Amino acid sequence: MLRNGDVVLQRYQIESALGQGGMGAVFRARHVHLDTEVAVKVLQRSTGPETAALMARFLREAKLVAKLNHPNIVRVLDFGLIPELDDAPCIVMELIDGPSFEDVLIDHGPQPFEVLLDVCIAAASGLTAAHEQGILHRDVKPANLVRAADGIRLVDFGIALPLADDVRLTRAGALVGTPIYMAPEHLLGAPATYATDLYALGVTLYELACGLPPYDDKDLGSLVQMAMKGPPAMEPPDDLPPIPGLFEQLVLRMLAPDPNRRPESAAHVAAAAMSIRKEARKRAARASSSALDDFARLSSDSSQSLPEVRPPAPPAESGVPPRTDSDVPSSIRERGTWSRPFPPVKKPSKS
């Protein structure tokens, strides 16, 4: 595998390893001429009979994502083969220096409503761009949503497929994806559709809100049975405000067991989430305005006055004569230090 300092495709110098994916390793690299940072994803070498299929799938990922020019989807910048690694293919992508929402969930726990809205709008907008090109992501989950400095990106299209190819793959008996984010009909063998991507987004949002997915079981049969019953209500932890009803309805619709009862498209989900955000901001502005109006009314009400502040009562007679200015040296009075000076220190007599 690649080491720090190696140069691939004659222009990308490897700086460090970033992680291991389902199909290969990912490295941080720098363009030797432009001095820009990139991510280089390299397919793991394999000598098994699946090598040709893996290489074809890897090439498909590069071509698919290269078609998707959208601010919420990771950009593909280059593609090529590495002769030093027996012509292993590599994809060069923009480097996103930020945590995945799986990391956010592990480090910070369930997320507030405002963050859920940001994730929903970004992911649904990215899926809209992919679906318009006839491309299914097939593995939407917190680990594949990354928070960058300028927004949220949908990443890892390693198992993405054109819709027609997914039908052929399903007929061959392959099950690709992460089971707890997969729609029940897909777990039962039906082809993936745009509705299965929306189901996975619904599970993702539910998990980010509540800290756990709506259902979780290592046994696929049990997982399907739970999913077919429909999702439980969303219950965020006590230290977070409750989820607004409109947003909860949207998430639960994405989790409907019947794909025909889910939102019509990712574009509809994005539009609904933006409408909910607009309404939430209006309500927040009205609440803030009402609070300011209450303060203004209080300030202008002449019947309201500050309570009278009385001076403290004089101390009780103690038999000690009160201190006067003459007791304090003038140098101390000028500094405003109203405390008696220490008595002078007597010099020791010479023996």
Rank of each mutant, 00 (worst) to 15 (best):
M228A: 12
N4Q: 07
I121N: 04
P112W: 05
L201K: 11
Q44N: 10
E102T: 11
L187Q: 05
F295Q: 13
A123M: 03
I152K: 00
A291G: 13
H33K: 15
P49V: 09
D327G: 04
A192I: 11
E207R: 10
I96T: 00
A183C: 04
P237T: 08
S351M: 11
I152D: 05
P307K: 02
G5F: 09
K347P: 11
I332M: 05
L18R: 04
R147L: 04
I180P: 15
S302A: 13
V26E: 00
A17N: 15
S303Q: 14
H137R: 00
R323C: 06
N144C: 05
L145M: 01
M93S: 01
H186D: 12
L116N: 09
T196D: 12
E334S: 13
R60V: 08
D197W: 03
A62D: 11
D301N: 09
H108C: 05
G245A: 03
P112E: 07
K41W: 03
F27M: 08
A124G: 10
A172L: 15
D97L: 13
G22E: 03
V32G: 09
L68M: 10
D217S: 02
L127M: 01
G336W: 02
L127Y: 04
P232E: 02
P71W: 02
D216R: 11
K67M: 08
P213N: 13
L161E: 06
V7Y: 11
L201P: 14
P237N: 05
V104F: 08
G177Y: 01
H268N: 08
T128M: 07
T337L: 12
V74R: 00
P329D: 01
P315C: 10
D6P: 00
E308Y: 06
L127Q: 07
Q13A: 14
A143H: 00
A25Q: 14
E317T: 12
A164L: 07
G319P: 15
S351D: 14
A129V: 12
V104K: 03
Y215V: 15
A123Y: 04
D118C: 06
A256R: 03
D156I: 00
R153V: 03
H31D: 09
L136C: 02
I91W: 03
G221T: 01
A233I: 14
S290F: 14
F157A: 01
A130G: 09
W338P: 12
T170L: 11
L175R: 11
L127V: 03
A143D: 00
D219L: 12
S305I: 13
I180M: 14
H268T: 12
R171C: 14
L136F: 00
S16N: 11
